[in-house]
Amino acid sequence: MIGTKGAQTSARLVESMLELIQARGYSGTGLNTVVEHARAPKGSLYFHFPEGKEALGEKAVELAAERFRALVVESALEPGSPGDVVRRVIGVLDGMLADSDFELGCPVSVVTLEMGAQSERLRDACANAFGSWIDPLAEYLAAQGHPAAAARTLATAVVSTVEGAMILSRAQRSTEPLRCAADVIAALLDRPLTGERLA
């Protein structure tokens, strides 16, 4: 029971860190605020994360990566074209932004921009997160008939485009950039496969 309670406290701390990074950024998130937000006992943070804020931030990035990867995988399992898959994923992101009044962005891009040059640990966590989104999308596109190299190129371009659209949408307080990204990506992915493929 103690182990279970401890695991629950650790999970709440990670969840709170993730939510606060989305709303305030990594640098704007203090550890005391995380503990209060998680309603965790004082001292629990360093008990579960003795290496401090970077360790907690790393786990938050991993949690965000896991959730978005699951979204990509689940969307790919539903019927429809590759463009439909991407539209479903972007639709979820569109809803998240609108529902939060454009306060919640992608925590992985936030941590990358803030800490990528300062913390190798967090930069690696973010690189792994992006990779965990590109990989299943590349596998899906390869299964749709694209050569492996071309599938990975397309998947990388899709993730890059969506991340950029998320940033623009937050800045403009409009989901139009995301909708534009969805239209362009869907048109690209749904065009018939021909001999002229990406190398």
Results as ranks from 00 to 15, higher is better:
2 I>S: 14
2 I>K: 13
3 G>M: 02
5 K>Y: 14
5 K>R: 15
7 A>K: 10
8 Q>C: 00
9 T>D: 05
10 S>I: 00
10 S>Y: 00
11 A>Y: 00
12 R>T: 11
13 L>M: 04
13 L>W: 06
15 E>D: 14
15 E>R: 14
16 S>A: 15
19 E>K: 06
19 E>Y: 04
20 L>N: 04
27 S>C: 01
29 T>G: 04
29 T>R: 01
30 G>S: 13
32 N>T: 11
32 N>F: 02
33 T>K: 03
33 T>G: 14
35 V>N: 08
36 E>Q: 15
43 G>W: 05
45 L>F: 04
49 F>H: 04
51 E>I: 03
53 K>V: 04
55 A>G: 08
55 A>M: 14
60 A>M: 05
61 V>Y: 02
64 A>D: 02
66 E>V: 09
66 E>S: 13
69 R>P: 01
70 A>M: 13
72 V>F: 02
72 V>S: 06
74 E>N: 12
74 E>I: 10
77 L>G: 13
79 P>C: 03
79 P>M: 10
83 G>K: 05
83 G>R: 14
85 V>S: 06
86 V>W: 00
90 I>F: 06
92 V>K: 15
92 V>T: 11
93 L>G: 15
93 L>N: 12
93 L>D: 11
94 D>R: 10
96 M>C: 02
99 D>E: 07
100 S>M: 07
100 S>G: 09
103 E>R: 15
104 L>V: 12
105 G>L: 13
105 G>I: 12
105 G>Q: 04
106 C>G: 07
106 C>N: 12
108 V>S: 05
109 S>L: 03
111 V>A: 04
114 E>D: 06
115 M>N: 01
116 G>E: 00
116 G>W: 03
117 A>R: 03
118 Q>R: 13
120 E>D: 07
121 R>S: 01
121 R>A: 02
125 A>I: 05
125 A>G: 01
129 A>N: 00
129 A>S: 03
134 I>F: 09
135 D>M: 06
135 D>F: 05
140 Y>H: 13
140 Y>S: 01
141 L>I: 05
142 A>S: 14
143 A>S: 15
144 Q>Y: 07
145 G>E: 14
146 H>K: 09
146 H>M: 11
149 A>N: 15
151 A>W: 12
153 T>M: 15
154 L>A: 12
156 T>R: 11
158 V>K: 09
159 V>C: 03
159 V>I: 15
162 V>P: 01
163 E>I: 10
164 G>P: 05
164 G>Q: 00
166 M>F: 12
168 L>F: 11
173 R>N: 15
177 P>I: 04
177 P>Y: 08
178 L>P: 08
179 R>A: 15
180 C>G: 11
180 C>I: 14
181 A>W: 09
181 A>C: 03
182 A>F: 07
182 A>N: 07
183 D>F: 00
184 V>E: 03
184 V>P: 00
185 I>S: 01
186 A>W: 10
186 A>K: 07
187 A>C: 07
188 L>S: 12
191 R>H: 07
191 R>S: 10
194 T>G: 12
194 T>R: 09
196 E>C: 11
199 A>G: 07
